[in-house]
Design a protein around this nucleic acid. Structure first.
Lengths: 163, 163
DNA sequence: TCAATAACCAAGTGATTTAGTCAAGTATTA
DNA sequence: TAATACTTGACTAAATCACTTGGTTATTGA
């Protein structure tokens, strides 16, 4: 979504472009953007020259929504907030994880794509990515690579012992 | 640790007791408390009547430490903070996940066992647990059950798409 | 001294999750 | 009408994590 925010100025951005810049496989991006589209966060344009564009202004798209569209939840309780963590009963630490979840959601609800684009760090990295892609594309012609190099999965390491 | 905080008033608490109240298997508790002991958060007493006790006062034990001792990290970046998320380079969203990690750590560093014990919700649930255990133990005699009923694992659901 | 109790330890297991792949489509436009 | 791009669904590989198995060692009380 950030790539879209940074490169969506002149018409739709193809997933192949994003795949090249962000080192995420095209097939996987297709999955993610399917969810994003169904959540109403992006719009798509088919056919040659097509691609995706953000459905709203940068300052109206919050990270929490994006994660919600893709992952469906940022809840840290084992019971997904239901309170039946311990065989129908509520476990001792339920309220703690509930508070933490609220904390995380609050933070992610406060960060918009506009906020991220405004960061010097983000602009710098995006600049590097663009330069790299340009020099790489100078040497090749219309290379459609469906299988891209993969990376190790990210994961939030903290896990409640009971919650 | 909360169970220990609530029941550690009169001498050490055995893991079998905690297992009974919190529905966590004894063998699994042994693993966790091994880590907690090595981290200096609890002390142990062997032999009959033995068990574990908190190594510090309630208001000096923070949830962040407990998670750190057991899980080792609450980092949400895919590179564990190293900044080499994208094949040696830093990925676009690195700073976002770094901020989120700091947010989570800050929250968990601010919650002590004393804070949790002071919660009405926690006291209420602990009361229920004690009453249930009493009525169950009235009917049996020295039942050493090493294999306890298990529960579905908790997990933080939010996962950064790239970080 | 011996048996019971409870901490200690190492290795393995199994369910779940998630990033990612594969193989088909269908729509759009030059 | 062919190329481009999006759509869908089923599958896979790896990792994680809660949990188990099968022991050993230390302490206490009878």
């Amino acid at each position: 979504m950030l790539d879209l925010a940074l490169h969506g100025g002149r018409g739709p951005v193809s997933l192949a472009d994003i795949a090249g810049r962000q080192h995420i496989s095209l097939a996987y991006l297709e999955q993610l953007f399917g969810k994003l589209r169904r959540a109403g966060l992006v719009g798509s344009v088919r056919g040659p020259g097509g691609g995706y564009r953000l459905a709203r202004e940068l300052d109206a798209v919050y990270v929490a929504e994006i994660i919600g569209a893709v992952d469906e939840s940022v809840d840290t309780t084992r019971c997904q907030g239901a309170g039946d963590c311990q065989g129908g009963e509520t476990c001792l630490t339920h309220s703690l994880w509930e508070d933490l979840s609220e904390q995380i959601l609050g933070f992610l609800r406060g960060v918009s794509l506009a906020d991220l684009v405004a960061r010097g760090e983000v602009r710098r990295i995006a600049g590097c990515q663009d330069r790299k892609l340009d020099s790489r594309q100078a040497g090749k012609r219309h290379g459609k690579a469906r299988a891209k190099p993969s990376q190790t999965p990210p994961r939030i390491a903290a896990t409640p012992v009971a919650g």
